[in-house]
Design a protein around this nucleic acid. Sequence first.
RNA 1: GCCGUCGUAGCUCAGCCUGGUAGAGCGCGUGCUUGGUAAGCACGAGGUCGCGGGAUCGAAUCCCGUCGGCGGCUCCA
Length: 664
Amino acid sequence: MADIILKVSKGQKFSDLVPEKLHQRIVAARMNKKLFDLSDEVPEDGDAELIDVYSDDGLIILRHSTAHVLANAVVELYNALPNTSNENLDGFYYDFDMQPVSTEDFPKIEEKMNEIIKKDLKIEKYTMKRDDILNLFRNNPYKTDKILKNADDDATVYREGDYYEFCRGPHVPSTGFIKAFKLLSVASTTYNGEINGKRMIRIYGTAFPDKKMLDQFLRNREEAMKRDHRRIGQEMDLFIFDTERAPGMPFYTPNGAIIRNELIKYMSEINASNNWQEVWTAHVFRDIIWKQSGHYDKYKNDMFLFQLENGEHYGLKPMNCPGHIAIFQRNVYSYRDMPVKYCEPGTVYRYEKSGEMGGLTRPRGFTIDDGHGFLRQDQILDEVSSLLGMIHDVFNTIMGDVEFSFDLSIMDKNNPGNYLIEYKCKNCGNIFMLRAASSNLECPNCSSKDLEMDFSMWDTATENLRKALESKNLRYKEYPGEAAFYGPKIDVHVKDALNRFWQLSTIQLDFFMPINFDLYYINSDGKKERPVIIHRAIYGSYERFIAILLEHYNGKLPTWLSPIQTYVIPVSENYNEYALSINNLFIKHGIRSRIDLSSETISKKIKMIRSMRPSYIIVVGEREEHNKSISIRNRKDKTLEMPVNEFIEKINDEISSREINQMF
RNA sequence: GCCGUCGUAGCUCAGCCUGGUAGAGCGCGUGCUUGGUAAGCACGAGGUCGCGGGAUCGAAUCCCGUCGGCGGCUCCA
């Protein structure tokens, strides 16, 4: 439905503007970017937008209102003290101070919620004085705290039956607007996320405008759980975790190593064709390099650091950039040599806290398809454009025609102290870079405090990132204040088959490392000049990317990535010889083929191998031997007989062109 | 790191509440079966119940500690 925009005049009630037939669909209104309850009066003449429950904003309002019904129910059932709720892409949650509940209690809570919904309680809004609100919530310290922090004398309180909520709104007009909801899970959390805060119970749920959408969501959710990469990894025998002896470290089994190596090989080709030179760097460094890079100060608690008998201090690399910088420093470069671009499948080790690890998505050791470019400032645009092209090619090749989203994280000029920026001393003319938050704002040369900020480096870099995105016609969102202190960045998200966005690629500009390591090149005037470093990864990490691919394809990887490309099954022992000759022929032609000579029935062999997701199952018997052919069963369980040589040619094409779809 | 929850055969799990030193299915091995596209039959091997301690005549089971896993929180260069 298109947004409904109406001319409205001051004093009208929004609810009176809703067309009769949309009565159950319009949940709120918006004017001048402000949301209103339908019970509100129009504040001034102008254009108002009616918010449909099927729109993004409407959905959030619906979920928000459902969270309140949850709170209402939980307060009645358990005498809980509600704290706060939130809504997101998947649903909502509400935090309570209460005795722990489990999912077994959900039916009871849902029943109570349904009662509240059936009553179709009006959700009424009251504007109240702060002291009155405080009085109303005097028995709830969490609400009191929030009121003290947020309320002024025209703050709002909403009533739903006997239940009151201190809230900005808006809400759906009555509880009957909630047509389809479900509680999903329960977890514990801390009050306001404070690390030592009071323990709270968080109940997760979701709501949709109709039952059909809810069911679809629940089905997707179930499918996502079935597709969990840990489960698929087990079924396909791809990797293991030796949780006792090497917690958080993935081990690739032969099948998993095939996938990883194919991805590395492809990235290596992409890198080479875009002039990124492959290097190899050490995994263990003396700690001095981490002190120089700044990682030690900031991340030493998250690093694997150790000391030898002789007293020397070492650390495993948590980042690849210092290694690449070390290689860059072997030479003096002319501006003509730039850019210098090094890349590497670089394995890094980070001591993630025990509770922060999880499968392949958050291991302690992982390999980044890392790259560091050393650029002149005028080369940023070209390089970023080239990277955006690489990103496009890579994901379209591997995942198909996927949807992307781009985040541009930029500096917040209202808080320049957070960032490393250039200053000019008005006293002595010295130009230097400084992160104001971390040191005194004074000229390192003459100690003058009369300084002028110069944003030009940031402005140029940010403008180049924008230009690169725009030149490729990519839509992006800007996030002021989200830039790293050392530079702006682009993060790339890719949508998978289950409609989930994953952050994969990142392109970060860095003004800081070049200073820490005193990097320079010689410009056309023969003077030293600082390069900008570009940090980039396309897959992100191999571990995470493999996990995403497994879930995206439900393990049914394109043939070029598939650990088992053909699985040969003879109909009976009488055809073992023919089957063996076929298998050997495949292997000779570079196809990853296996054969099943066990004395099981053909049905059982197929049943057993299915969880390993071979690309093609090849069945041979009398007919095939006679015809010099094979029977091929594809991933969709279609079968086709084909001459052996024709199949070999076709599958080799499929593999070498990294085709996503099967030959039939 | 914090809260919750879990750890039994290669895998998935039952037994634990209400102590009497282990069970299933799949897989694996052997034999029979020679089967044409999602489980043929029989027999067999395999586990000191994550690890350490405590109370008990006796612990997979109860208590404490510890190491891991999972769901969240916090964090993620």
